[in-house]
Amino acid sequence: MRMAKHLLILSLITDMATGLYAQEEDLLKLVGGEDKPKKEYVDYSFKSSRVIMSHSMEMIRPGVMDMRILHRFGNINKGAYEFFGLDNAAMRLGFDFGITKNLMFGIGRSTNKKELDGFIKYRLVHQSKGPGAMPFSFLLVGGSSMTLLKWADTSRKNYFSSRIGYYGQAIIGRKFSEGFTLQFMPTVVHRNLVATKDDPGDLLAVGAGARLKLSRRISLNIDYYYRLNPNPNDGTQNPLSIGFDIETGGHVFQLHFTNAVGMNEKVFLLETTNKWEKGDIQFGFNISRSFQLKKRKK
């Protein structure tokens, strides 16, 4: 009797085992199914390496050249005679290059004050998910600009160094979700020569840039700086830009409205005189076109 019971149990067990066989099993589960969680970097936080006027937490990939053509038209409130500002345009032609995953540089030339500018951008911390995740990205940008205008006053001694200004910027940013990215940019701008003694030699500012993705190809971007120690007497304003990034396959178009005329950090932080509340805003657009200079190995 006891033996029979044991046999019954045994046959039950083997039955169960064969029963498992017969079912169509998920083979992938046998090898751990899901791969073990790996550290994964968070990319594509912005459509391009700029929010609108500022550097974004996004990098140009290694071996890529990004040709950037920036335009700012005249003030919209100038009316139909000036075609709402479109009769006047300032522009900056620039080329950015990706060197490594975390290092890029760029050069540009602006019509405004005939300025030449350049920068280096380095990513120290790259936001990531999974084991050893970092909740944010941290980048440093160092740049310089030089005006190539003829000296206004040739009667005095003009130094070459007076043409030059510098800026340094830290970017702390996080892509919170597919749809939302936010970054802050503490910035210092230094000018070797200032116009009056009220002008700060070193201007401190804190910027904020955000992206709200509206669809796969369109996002709403906001880019703003609050200046801590501006010259109170020169009527300059905090720069604010609001616009859309539209990605069309090969190009990124940034259409926006802004009160900043200049297209490098020194100019838009120190020489923005237009006021949003008065409607002294301009339409602007940036075109970014990537070229892969160095193809990746297969």
Binding site: E25, L28, G250
Partner: peptide, 17 residues
């Protein structure tokens, strides 16, 4: 029976864009 799985982010292209 045969099964495959692949992570889409693991595809590498010649051009970053």
């Amino acid at each position: 029976n045969m099964q495959f799985a692949v992570l889409m982010k693991g595809f590498e292209f010649e051009k970053a864009l």
